[in-house]
Design a protein around this nucleic acid. Sequence first.
DNA 1: TCAATTTTGTACACACATGAACATAACAGT
DNA 2: ACTGTTATGTTCATGTGTGTACAAAATTGA
Lengths: 198, 198
Amino acid sequence: MARPSKFNRDQAVEFAMNAFWKEGYEANSVKALSEKLGITRSSFYNAFGDREQLFDEALALYMRGSPDKALKEAVPGIPIKSLFTETFRTICKVRAADPEGRGCLVVNGVAELCGTHATLGPKLQAAMLANVKRFETLLQQGVANGELAPDTDVHTLALAVKNLLVGLNVLSKLIHDEEELWRTASTTLRALNLLEEA
Amino acid sequence: MARPSKFNRDQAVEFAMNAFWKEGYEANSVKALSEKLGITRSSFYNAFGDREQLFDEALALYMRGSPDKALKEAVPGIPIKSLFTETFRTICKVRAADPEGRGCLVVNGVAELCGTHATLGPKLQAAMLANVKRFETLLQQGVANGELAPDTDVHTLALAVKNLLVGLNVLSKLIHDEEELWRTASTTLRALNLLEEA
DNA sequence: TCAATTTTGTACACACATGAACATAACAGT
DNA sequence: ACTGTTATGTTCATGTGTGTACAAAATTGA
């Protein structure tokens, strides 16, 4: 029904995700991305609207595959200590396995764009705060389960866990050894009484 | 002995520090900075060499005034739990008091530049790792003091504390309430047995 | 084959950005 | 006044970056 596209749109979004992840938002201009994708800027604008919309798509793709997605999908009633333990273990593995040490796209984005970008800044910020809410719900389940003490301050504990997660995602840009990352994470997790000891 | 400068160099470095802090490195071009300083690019290059050298100076200035400087200056023999406690308390206060919620220049810089900048990336990275070493030394003092158990894994604990600090500096970009930041920090600090309870 | 559709390719206009070159201006000391 | 010194102002050259405009190309279905 129309002229066929020269490139695979999904692959392009994935490529952009990896580029934003490694080098940030501003370092990837429409010009640079287009050239790397082997398409003209004309095709870029036609396919994606503008760079910000492509970032939105890349962010959505990232979220779908991010190592903490288990926390978002977890069903009610599941033991939450093992859920947190397994998830942090996975995060350490995935972050250490990244040969480019890119950390987390959302955390990088918050650091880069919160002070500058009028729409992406708040969007990334909201994504991170939604995560805290999610943690609260899970910890509340832990209280209901009897895994955590009834008087647990779930809001504050959720923030402490989020803090651990964010810190780990930054540190993984400097520390590439999985076991060292895990020692760091598990030390705090154990201290917070959220580690399921094997 | 020569034509006098139109602007105050120290003030310009401070201005640049604040600009880099809020908006990052790449968002502050020589052109933009020069215009904001009310000087020509010619004067800029003459005074600072290039943007990277100015960033170096801004970074040094930042380090001299950063809220964790107490940890760098601490003398041997001082009780380390109260040192960490006071320092983290100060960090929460200072970060929450920043109306622009900029977090930490070094952490922001690591997030922005580690994957892109050939010289500043490693420099910022090194600054952060030096901090971990410093924490190790302090914790070792805590062991010697008897404040911490003799079998404490000071390296891992230092990483956990650094993780807390880094996470807090990112979270402070989203959470602007001092008490909420402090509840987050003190929860982890207490769990790690590093909180000096008043 | 023609028409409708959508992608491409090319061009234009403009602003941003770097860095160097070079003349000019403003000072201090003699 | 003259000289040396350093900052400033202006210009040049070159490349990057955005967004739009419009013609040409490649497909499908009638």
